[in-house]
């Protein structure tokens, strides 16, 4: 909060290099956790958090301009609302089978990646909501202008 211009440019060369190498892996790991949520521990929330952390990592190392160029604020809030709406509409589609939240897609064989009906899709929706939401919270707290006090 205290330092001004140095924070804008990000951290040292070492941190930037390591970040460049690892940020893709973190994102990939998040996607792995998210897509295997229905067959192993993990799922939408954990995957979403890791995806958000990869962007937060980028922001910490390179400063907020670079991270916000990759993922602007408008896009974040769009994804957040879309995640919620996708989740709700899948739940509503269950009415085609007569019940709210009905698992209306064929459940397939257990322990396969393509199984469990609507649960992987719901995981994706949750991860959109959580990832975008967590990043938006972080951005909002970073960008909040305390001095001078004013509304955004």
């Amino acid at each position: 909060m205290g330092s001004k211009s140095k924070n804008e440019q990000g951290m040292t060369l070492i941190v930037k290099t390591i970040t460049r190498l690892t940020v893709g892996l973190i994102l990939l790991y998040g996607i792995y956790i998210l897509s295997h949520g229905h067959v192993s521990p993990g799922g939408g929330f954990a995957g979403g958090v890791i995806i958000a952390l990869s962007f937060i990592h980028l922001m910490l190392a390179y400063g907020k301009e670079v991270a916000l160029k990759r993922l602007p604020k408008g896009v974040t809030s769009f994804f957040e609302s879309m995640g919620a709406i996708i989740f709700l509409s899948i739940a509503l589609l269950g009415f085609t089978g007569g019940y709210f939240f009905l698992n209306f897609i064929s459940k397939g064989e257990p322990f396969r990646l393509f199984s469990a009906g609507i649960i992987p899709i719901l995981n994706i929706a949750i991860s959109l909501k959580v990832g975008a939401g967590l990043f938006a919270i972080f951005v909002a707290l970073v960008l909040l202008k305390l001095f001078p006090p004013e509304d955004d």
Binding site: F45, L134, I137, L141, L144, K145, L146, P149
Partner: peptide, 23 residues
Amino acid sequence: LTSIVIGLATTALLIAIAMRIYG
């Protein structure tokens, strides 16, 4: 897990209010 998510939301809101108060 649900309760942790709720805790996250509450904490984020409290911190945002705290920062505004500091401002």
